[in-house]
């Protein structure tokens, strides 16, 4: 296969289309596993899910074919290193939310996020988290009686 051929497979629509095909196939398999439920005079419970999964699959096939036929740029990396590190930070934040005192969590998360995004100003790194924490505490907890996770 020539270099030209390789880049055909890396074209944007080809890659996205193939991902959709994969998703469609996986979802179709999952949809066929849905129980049929009680005997009733109507469409079985997996009809609409199957329409959607097969629809996804066909969209993927169509995009792939379009990508193969029409020359276009190769797909770029969807995420840069900063976004990736911030994504990891988000995930950690969401996972920790229920288990960590919200005041502590905000005081750690906000400056970490700012640092990753290139903020190097000390006053900002301190003021933003404290103000955010007090804002969430005042607004949600005090004003609107939302019970956020606390350790004490």
């Amino acid at each position: 296969m020539t270099a030209q051929g390789k880049s055909t497979l890396l074209r944007e629509d080809v890659v996205i289309g193939l991902v959709l095909v994969g998703l469609g196939v996986a979802a179709t398999i999952a949809a066929t596993g849905i129980a049929q439920g009680p005997q009733q005079r109507t469409l079985p419970p997996n009809t609409v899910p199957l329409i959607c999964t097969i629809g996804l699959l066909l969209c993927g096939v169509f995009l792939t074919i379009k990508g193969l036929l029409v020359p276009q740029k190769a797909i770029g990396l969807p995420i840069d290193s900063r976004q990736f590190s911030i994504l990891i930070l988000f995930i950690a934040f969401f996972l920790a939310f229920e288990h960590v005192d919200f005041r502590l969590l905000i005081l750690v998360f906000v400056p970490a996020c700012k640092l990753l995004m290139g903020c190097r100003s000390w006053p900002q790194l301190i003021i933003t988290p404290v103000v955010t924490m007090l804002g969430v505490w005042g607004f949600f907890v005090q004003l609107f009686k939302v019970f956020l996770p606390t350790w004490m």
């Binding site: 996205i16 849905i34 049929q36 439920g37 609409v48 899910p49 959607c52 999964t53 996804l56 969209c59």
Partner: peptide, 28 residues
């Protein structure tokens, strides 16, 4: 339009998660 359709199909699929109102069967 293809991407829009795919997104809509995905959205409907997401909405089918949970107990099916018509049959009482859990889905996905």
């Amino acid at each position: 339009l293809i991407k829009g359709l795919a997104a809509a199909f995905f959205g409907i699929l997401v909405s089918t998660v949970g107990i099916d109102g018509t049959s009482g069967v859990p889905r996905f």
